[in-house]
Amino acid sequence: MAITAAMVKELREMTGAGMMDCKKALNETNGDMEAAVEFLRKNGQAKAEKKAGRIAAEGLCKVIVKEDKTAAVVEVNSETDFVAKNEEFQNFVTAVAEQAINSEAKDMDAFLAENWNADASKTVKEALVEKIAVIGENLTIRRFEKVVAENGCVVSYTHGGGRIGVIVEADTDVVNDAIKEALTNVAMQVAALAPKYVSQADVSEEYKEHEKSILLEQAKNENPDKPEGIIEKMIIGRLNKELKEICLLEQAYVKAEDGKQSVGKYLEQVAKENGANLTVKKFVRFETGEGIEKKEEDFAAEVAKQMGM
C-alpha cells in the first residue's frame, strides 16, 4: 500500500511521534493505522515524543577513566531528582559514559547515530527512546566529552553523587600515586570553584578588553570625581583580581594550610618532590542542569486548574 503524506500527518497527530518514525511505522504495518499506533507504542516513540517537550534539568554526570590515559564525562538529564536516584537510570548513565569513552564521535548528532555498545542492533538514540518508555520521563543525553592524554595522564573527580563531574588532563613524565593524588586534588578544586581557564595565557585579549570596559564603567560610576589615571590603575587591579579567580593555576589552593598557596605553586611543589615535569593541560567540568532554565511549578495552581476551580 502506498503511504501518503496525509497518512503520516494523521499518525503524527494521533501519537505525537516524529515524522520519520510515523512513516516507518506505516511502512512496517502496510498502512494499517491502528497497527502503526501499536508499532510506535511498542517501540517507545509515541510515549517518548509526547514527553519530549518537558524540561529535563535533573539527572547525573558520570565520569569513566581507562588506564589513566583516556577519560569521558557525560551528562544525562531527567525531569525529576527522584528518577536521577533510580538504579535503572543510573545504570543507563553508566552505559552512556562507557559508550562515550569508546566513541569517535565529534558531536551529539554523530554520537546518537552510533551503534549502541550494549546492543549493536540499535543506535544510541533508539536506546534512549526505549529508556524513556521504560522510565516514563523525558530523558536527554545532553553532552559528552572525551579526553585522551598524549603525554601524561588523566584523573577524575565526581561530586555530590554525580551532580558535578570533572576531568583533569596533565602532561607529566612521572605518573605515580603522588602525582595522581595531586591532580585529583586539583580536580576537586575545579569542582568547588568552577574556574573558566587553566591559566591567564588561555584568556583571550578580547575577553580581557570586554571585562576591562565593564570594570571601567563601574569604577567611573563609583568614583565620578577621580582622575582618569587613578581609575585606570584601579581597573587594572580589579581585572587582575578577577583573572586570579577564574584561572585555575592562580586560584588560592583550597587545601593549603595557610590559605595563601596558589594551585600553580602547589603543583610546582609536588612536581619537585617527585622529580617530575608536571603541567595541567586541560580540565572539563560538567554540572547537572547547568544553564538549563528550570520550569517553576505552582502545584496548588496546577491542581486548581485540573479541578476547574
Results as ranks from 00 to 15, higher is better:
residue 293 E to F: 02
residue 133 A to V: 04
residue 84 A to Y: 07
residue 286 F to R: 09
residue 297 E to Y: 13
residue 94 T to L: 14
residue 95 A to W: 00
residue 182 A to Y: 01
residue 203 V to K: 10
residue 103 S to A: 11
residue 305 K to I: 02
residue 188 M to R: 09
residue 279 T to R: 14
residue 292 I to P: 09
residue 129 V to C: 08
residue 212 K to G: 03
residue 77 N to F: 10
residue 215 L to P: 03
residue 152 G to D: 06
residue 172 T to Y: 03
residue 95 A to S: 15
residue 300 A to D: 12
residue 251 Q to W: 12
residue 168 V to T: 08
residue 69 K to Q: 13
residue 228 E to H: 01
residue 217 E to G: 15
residue 89 F to G: 03
residue 209 E to P: 03
residue 203 V to F: 13
residue 55 I to M: 09
residue 33 M to N: 04
residue 268 E to D: 15
residue 5 A to G: 06
residue 195 P to M: 10
residue 72 A to W: 14
residue 131 K to S: 05
residue 171 D to L: 04
residue 208 K to C: 12
residue 97 A to L: 12
residue 35 A to L: 13
residue 60 L to F: 06
residue 114 E to I: 01
residue 119 D to L: 01
residue 68 D to I: 02
residue 163 R to G: 05
residue 275 G to I: 08
residue 81 D to R: 00
residue 220 K to M: 13
residue 274 N to G: 06
residue 73 V to Y: 13
residue 75 E to A: 09
residue 288 T to S: 10
residue 193 L to Q: 14
residue 30 N to L: 06
residue 1 M to Q: 08
residue 5 A to M: 14
residue 167 I to H: 05
residue 18 G to I: 07
residue 17 A to F: 02
residue 38 E to R: 11
residue 23 K to V: 10
residue 99 Q to D: 05
residue 78 S to G: 12
residue 60 L to N: 12
residue 303 V to K: 09
residue 129 V to Y: 04
residue 241 K to N: 13
residue 174 V to Q: 09
residue 63 V to F: 12
residue 206 E to S: 14
residue 219 A to Y: 00
residue 110 A to N: 03
residue 120 A to F: 00
residue 223 N to T: 07
residue 137 E to C: 06
residue 69 K to V: 10
residue 302 E to Y: 00
residue 22 C to F: 07
residue 165 G to F: 08
residue 237 G to R: 13
residue 158 T to K: 14
residue 117 N to M: 08
residue 88 E to I: 10
residue 1 M to K: 12
residue 196 K to L: 14
residue 269 Q to G: 03
